[in-house]
């Protein structure tokens, strides 16, 4: 429906009128840039840190009671996480106070800008904190099902840490990691709550911009907002299709290889 509204034409305007207009719109382009930047960085960081933590915890603890600590951020709504980020990283925040007490600062304004900054560092930090638990909870079952004897084989054959990881763990976690990356990337791309609190007026992230346009007086920009969302959806679906077929084929190949052996 968003699609049909965004195709609606007035008089002799071409079919893709709103899409062409979007493409020439600097506000949109900068929003797209910053959205992809935030989604990519925060998702990659969450995935890497989550992977590291899962590996470490999985090896250190036989029982998985510890995962309830990791569960904790999942209980906190996104915008509360944003507030916590603000509490910690704002110029008037806790870290700034600590750095002042150490004596490295003289005024609040000397503290680097982490929230409401054009690089969206605060937003990225919030997402990383919120999504690490999700990564852990998705990866942990895979690690628990993994046959660690392969690891011993690889070690006795003289593989170093990286080789062991590459040949034993990666084949197992690769498909699920891709899936997690995809889910989180798309989520961050389309979520409104955090950038609405910790973002800046320019550039806005796409969801915030879409919401603004959607409610602007007279609904003039509503088709534009909808066109933007359609583009975002299409991007997400195409990416999903690509990544899922790729990982599916890959999983299939790997499964058949294991049957042969």
């Amino acid at each position: 429906m968003a699609a049909s509204d965004s195709f609606a034409t007035e008089g002799n305007q071409p079919f893709f009128h709103f899409y062409l207009e979007l493409w020439r719109n600097d506000t949109f382009l900068s929003a797209l840039r910053v959205s992809v930047w935030v989604a990519f960085i925060s998702t990659t960081m969450a995935l890497i840190i989550g992977l590291f933590l899962t590996r470490a915890m999985f090896r250190l603890f036989k029982r998985d009671d510890w995962k309830f600590i990791a569960w904790f951020p999942m209980l906190i709504p996104h915008f509360v996480a944003a507030y916590i980020c603000f509490l910690l990283f704002a110029p008037s925040g806790w870290f700034s106070s600590v750095v002042f007490q150490i004596g490295w600062l003289e005024t609040m304004s000397q503290f680097p800008v982490f929230v409401n900054d054009p690089m969206y560092l605060g937003v990225i930090l919030t997402y990383v904190w919120k999504e690490i638990p999700f990564v852990i909870l998705m990866l942990l079952p895979v690690y628990q099902e993994m046959d660690l004897r392969y690891e011993d084989v690889s070690k006795t054959l003289g593989g170093n840490r990286w080789t062991v990881f590459k040949t034993v763990e990666l084949p197992w976690i690769w498909p699920i990691s891709l899936e997690v990356f995809l889910i989180l990337f798309v989520f961050v791309l389309g979520a409104f709550e955090v950038p609405a609190l910790l973002g800046v007026t320019f550039p806005k992230m796409i969801p915030v911009l879409a919401y603004d346009w959607f409610y602007q007086a007279g609904w003039v920009n509503r088709p534009l907002a909808q066109a933007m969302m359609v583009i975002l959806s299409l991007l997400a679906i195409v990416a999903a299709a690509l990544i899922l077929t790729f990982s599916q084929r890959w999983r299939y190949k790997w499964a058949s290889r294991r049957d042969d052996s």
Binding site: A2, L182, V186, F187, G190, P207, M229, V230, L232, A240
Partner: peptide
Amino acid sequence: ILIPVLAIAMG
């Protein structure tokens, strides 16, 4: 999960 819910809601 994949399509932004905002898009669906606006639609």
